[in-house]
Computed example of a mutant assay.
Amino acid sequence: MTTPTRTDLLTDFSLEMTGKDVDDLQAAVPVLPSGTRVNVTFLGNEDLAMRTTAARAVRMAGLSPVPHISARRLHDRGELDTYLAALRDVDATSAVFCVGGDPATPAGPYPDSEAVIRTGVLAEYGVRHVSIAGYPEGHPDISGDVLWNALRAKAAALAEQGLEGSIITQFTFDEEPVLRWIEQVRDAGIHLPIRVGIPGPAGVKRLLGFARRFGIGANAMIVKKYGFSLANLIGTAGPDRLIAALFDGYDPARHGEVRLHFYTFGGLHATAQWIHDFRDR
């Protein structure tokens, strides 16, 4: 494996879409590099047809679909098999993102993503790479010790199943806790590639709303670093300053392989266009 460099942060980025974003995806295709990873969500208001249609649209656009598997939303093994089979039919199972999901009570036998990974079923449907979630700034409903134990267990489960893996972090407005957390991940002996979650350009109020929902720090210092003010919530904000700060603080020798993952709160096309223009600059 080649040694990562700072400029790698700006290459091989990923972003995500919902099942409702197929039209937005088509508009974004002209400004996305061929093969770009596009995560396809697994939300409670989406159904199997929406998820597989979106994954197929990603593949047909010359991009790489990464469907989400939400462990706590699955009612039984049959539903997991049906979902994976449908994804395989549209050539969308080579890579998936396995996450616990939002429901406080699991709908079925899978309390977390580790439980899904340990079924051994993923490889049966052609899955070779599994992304797992990381929380540099913690989780509003899960203690730090539980999060660390879960990360170690998921990384171990991937190795035991012979699956490639990576970590996608929750989004952040501040590079400092993320870079510290990545160092802790490496110190814990976990050397999976990490994709740092970046909020794409969006309305300021919308960004803050998502931050509060997920327990992400959004104090005055942090949002100033991101490029907007709590005193002025009108208009949109983009992650220019955050990416520049990550670029400055990233040490390939210390942090290992790191890329960016964009959360498209302001729309898939708008985020893709912003990334295209930012890279040109």
Rank of each mutant, 00 (worst) to 15 (best):
D8L: 07
L233Q: 05
G209E: 07
A27S: 11
G62K: 10
P30H: 04
L10I: 03
R51T: 14
N232Q: 14
L233Y: 07
P33V: 03
F210S: 03
Q26E: 14
R241G: 09
R186Q: 04
V121W: 13
R59T: 06
G78V: 12
A155K: 01
S14P: 00
E114K: 14
Y263P: 03
I182Y: 01
D12W: 00
V146D: 14
G138T: 04
V185I: 13
G249R: 10
L84D: 11
G162Y: 06
F262G: 01
L63N: 00
I222Y: 07
D280L: 14
A237D: 07
G267F: 09
T52K: 09
T93W: 03
F247L: 15
I167A: 00
T82G: 14
P239I: 02
D141N: 11
Q170G: 01
L15F: 14
R180G: 08
G138C: 08
L158M: 08
T172L: 11
Y263S: 04
F97E: 08
G197C: 04
R259V: 08
E124R: 11
T7Y: 09
D12G: 06
A57L: 02
Y226S: 02
D89I: 01
E183D: 14
G101I: 13
P199E: 01
A104V: 11
R186M: 03
A86M: 12
A237K: 11
P252E: 04
G227N: 12
G134P: 02
L260K: 00
A220Q: 14
T169N: 05
I194W: 00
K224C: 01
A104E: 12
A270L: 08
G197T: 06
A218I: 02
I182M: 06
A57V: 02
A253G: 13
F97G: 05
F278C: 01
F228M: 10
C98E: 05
S94W: 13
F214Y: 15
R88I: 03
D280E: 15
V29S: 06
N219I: 06
A150H: 10
I142C: 11
G266M: 10
G227S: 12
L230M: 08
V29G: 03
P193E: 07
M17A: 13
R77C: 13
V196N: 02
T11P: 01
T18P: 03
I190V: 06
F173R: 03
R206D: 12
G19C: 08
F278W: 13
V22S: 02
G120P: 07
A150I: 03
V127G: 04
D102N: 13
S166H: 01
A95K: 09
I275S: 07
R259N: 12
G134L: 06
P177S: 07
L84M: 13
G227M: 12
H255Y: 11
L260R: 02
P103D: 08
I132G: 06
A107P: 08
T169A: 07
